[in-house]
Every structure is written in C-alpha cells, then in structure tokens.
Design a protein around this nucleic acid. Sequence first.
DNA 1: CGAGGCCTTGACCGCGGTCAATGCCCGTGG
DNA 2: CCACGGGCATTGACCGCGGTCAAGGCCTCG
Lengths: 199, 199
Amino acid sequence: MEHAAVYQRLRENIEKTISVNQEQMELILQHFKPQKIEKNSITLRAGEYNQWMNFVDQGCLRIFFIKDDGQEVTRYLAFEGMFATGLASFITQEPSFEYLQAMENTVVLQINRNDFYYLLHIIPAWEKFFRDYLADAYINNITIYHRETTKDAEERYRELLKKDPIVVQRLPNRIVASYLNMSPETLSRMKRKILDLPK
Amino acid sequence: MEHAAVYQRLRENIEKTISVNQEQMELILQHFKPQKIEKNSITLRAGEYNQWMNFVDQGCLRIFFIKDDGQEVTRYLAFEGMFATGLASFITQEPSFEYLQAMENTVVLQINRNDFYYLLHIIPAWEKFFRDYLADAYINNITIYHRETTKDAEERYRELLKKDPIVVQRLPNRIVASYLNMSPETLSRMKRKILDLPK
DNA sequence: CGAGGCCTTGACCGCGGTCAATGCCCGTGG
DNA sequence: CCACGGGCATTGACCGCGGTCAAGGCCTCG
C-alpha cells in the first residue's frame, strides 16, 4: 500500500528534509491516506475544528478567509508536492477562520492530527520535520506580510509573474487577484498596464 | 550564576512550556548571557546576519522594517518575559530585513544561534520548546496579517486598546502608529474620534 | 441558441497618506 | 530661572491609490 505510486512524491518530500530508516518511513507513510477532492469543493470551513494535514499529490488546494463584506482573500496555494492545512486551527485546535478548497480535481494524502502528533512522540526526526515545516510557514507568512505592506498593486503583480508564474497560468483571474490582495478590476488594469509598458 | 535573579523569569518561561530536569535546565540557562541594551540603540540592522535570540528580562524591544520611502513598520514588541529576534534571518542565516531596537533601557538574556541549535540536538525537550515558539510566532503573524487585511484603521486601534493597552501606555505615539501600520496623523485622528464617541 | 459566469473598462469616490503649520513638552545652557 | 531649540503630537487642506458600481463583451456549457 505505502509502496503505491501515489506515495512517491510524499516520500521524496520527507527525505528532502529529514533522514529516517526504512521502518520509520513506513510508519510515517501508513498514517497518510489517499483522498480525492473534487474541483471547487471545500474541505474545511471557518468555525470548524481542523483535524487534517494534506499533502497535494495532484491538483491544487487554496487556503483563504472571508472578510466581513464577503470578499475572499487567498492566503496560500498548494500545488503538487506541497503541504496545505488551516495551520492555526491545526495547532491550537480552536475553530478555524480559514477555508480550504480544491481549485482543480485534486488527489491528496491526508494525515489525521492525532496521528501527526503521535508521530512527533515516537520519531524524533518527525519533530524536526515539523519544526522545519513551521519555520517555512513562518517565513512564507512574513514574506507575504512584508510584500503587502511595502509593494503597491503593480509591483506585487510583477513579482508574482516573475517568481510564481504557475499561479497565473493555472488559476482564474479572480483567484489570482484575491491572492494578491486586490480586486479583480485592479488586477485587470495592472495586466493592461504591464502589456503596454512591458517594463 | 544561573541561579541569579536575572534568570528567574526565563526559567519560569521555559518551565511553562516544557519539562526538563535540573541538569538540563542548568545546561540551557548557562548558554544565556545577560546583556544591557541602552534605550534607542539598535542591535540588529537590515543586511546583517542575525546570530542572537533575546529574552527580555527588563524593558522593551521592538522589531521593525523600513520601507523604500523610509517609513518604519513595527512588526513585534517584546516586553518582560518575552523572546525577540529577527526570526527569519535567525532561521535561514540570510541577511535580515528586520531591525531590532530597545525602546527603553533594557536587560536581555542572549543565546547565540549556534548554542541554540546545539541545544536542539542534545535536549529533546528543547526541540519541542522551539517547535512551540515557532508555532506561536506563526500564529501571531497570521493574526496580524488577518487583522491588517480585514480591519480599518479605527478598528485596529480599538482592538489594540482592548487587547494590548500596555503598548499604548509604554510607547510613544509614533511607534504605536507604526505598529498599527498607519501614519501618526491617522492615529491621532482615530484617538480623537474615539474620545468623541467613546463607542 | 440562450444563460450565466468571468473579464474588462469607465466613472466615481473614500480611506488614509502627505505636506505644512502650529502648539506643547522638556532638556540644556546662559 | 528663564530663553531657546528640537522632537513629537495635533490639526487642516489636499490628493492619489485602489475599491465600488455598473455596463458591455466574450466564452463555455447545457
């Protein structure tokens, strides 16, 4: 089961970060279960207690929250080979303020929170794995915060085109806009501006 | 040395998060050295490689970054009993984009990055300590991000008054403003507005 | 072929930033 | 003890980025 092709990507991801022997790897992998998530369906809603960590094998997940006026803000996009979860609720076990949605027909490997924390106790390297995961999540977050507060709409779009073109290629404009924290209208104007002055 | 009064607060902070025996506690504490930081002096600048984790025993440290136009944005304020460091650079060992400055005459306990990571190897509980620290830092960050993108200037100030009045009490307005990510003029207007309509 | 969703474009507007003037507080030196 | 100066807070006038609203066009899919 854990030798199936669907585990290959996850195995590589783990080996990239920590060293574990064959036995430990099997122990880790056997707690991850494959799961299909249909395009547009939502697997975590604000107010729910998040119990799952997801690893994207195929497809794309997005994490977003909703403002009082109903507007969505996309905080994270996970493509093949990336983890995704409503991390704050996963850690604190308080109700989530974030949503998790599949942007395409998606295949994930899911591990339950209890199993995840159980692994922390019995596999020391897994503690390091989580530590590195948290460190990445922190840095990702502060980078976004830094960008939001220092760059204007045009600069944020240019930066995305350069550093993360896959986002623009695979997702509709309205999602890209919410990821850049601007309205679809503004994104549309930025695109036009950049085509006119390719810089 | 490690029994000195200056270590008491740090000892309590550690014991709140993890269980360690006497020996391990001594081992941890002996890597923290007391240090005075004069009011307004800066101990970490953008571009430098951050080598230190600080624990505030007395006083106040702030972490901020500087926008292209020269404006400061305060990202974190650490009072007595809190840790503070330019965490991104501490983790990645790339040049910091953040500054660290004492807002008052401050006494900290400093641990060198190498010693900190050494402790991770030899004291398993220290790995959990760091994991919890990262988790808190992450949650703090995402909370700020969420607030910045969902609340307007007035709401942010009201929330600070309710949840963190110490910031308003101990720090000058221009710092409070930069912490709330607004100009001093706007903060001044919000204060007036709230005094007129105490809500 | 019709309907609905999305993107684009234009007109308008409001929050909050910028700039400048004024006042206040406080430390320092004559 | 008072005069002066510098830093900070406040206030008013102005403005610009980006959001809102509405209309129009295009694509897809049933």
